[in-house]
């Protein structure tokens, strides 16, 4: 009895570790890191807006990060990296079911962050704030349809 129990546990442990090692596509980590970078940069900008004297240099630096990260989004969701992969993620199947809509939403983010970058280059805080509004809307555009609602 004991030996069977041991064999069962050992084989279960072994197969679990093999499955875990069975190469998780690095794109999961890459895209999550990319979104975290977008989040950090968004916070970086919003924090300056909330301060008594916004630092334009900080806003510019974050604008560069936003534009660079936004351009990566569209190609970070290849086929086979949806819920069927069994990796814990908030990406909804809609990304792969409606690829054209997803591409469009991602391209809106690219455009909005590009506009934001050029607005921050002017150094005009009023323009920067308006451009940030569009970036926020682009974030929302994707989150509403392609990401699990937050609990």
């Amino acid at each position: 009895m004991k030996i069977w129990k041991f064999a069962f546990i050992a084989s279960a442990a072994l197969s679990t570790s093999i499955m875990a090692a069975a190469v998780v596509n690095p794109v999961f980590q890459q895209r999550q890191d990319n979104f975290k970078g977008l989040g950090k940069a968004m916070k970086g900008v919003m924090d300056e807006f909330k301060k008594p004297a916004p630092d334009m240099a900080v806003i510019k630096a974050n604008a560069n990060v936003l534009a660079a990260s936004a351009s990566k989004v569209a190609r970070q969701f290849p086929k086979g990296t949806g819920p069927e992969a069994g990796v814990k993620a908030d990406a909804l199947p809609a990304i792969w079911e409606k690829p054209a809509d997803f591409k469009l939403a991602a391209s809106r983010l690219v455009a909005a962050t590009r506009d934001f970058k050029s607005a921050s280059a002017t150094g005009d805080i009023a323009k920067v704030r308006v451009a940030m509004g569009a970036v926020g809307q682009a974030c929302k555009g994707c989150h509403d349809n392609f990401r699990k609602p937050r609990s």
Binding site: M46, F49, A126, R129, V130, M132, G133, V135, G136, Q137, A138, C139, K140, H143, R150
Partner: peptide, 12 residues
Amino acid sequence: KPADVVDEQSYM
């Protein structure tokens, strides 16, 4: 404060 361009709830 200038009016908020990005409402915190507006882009989640």
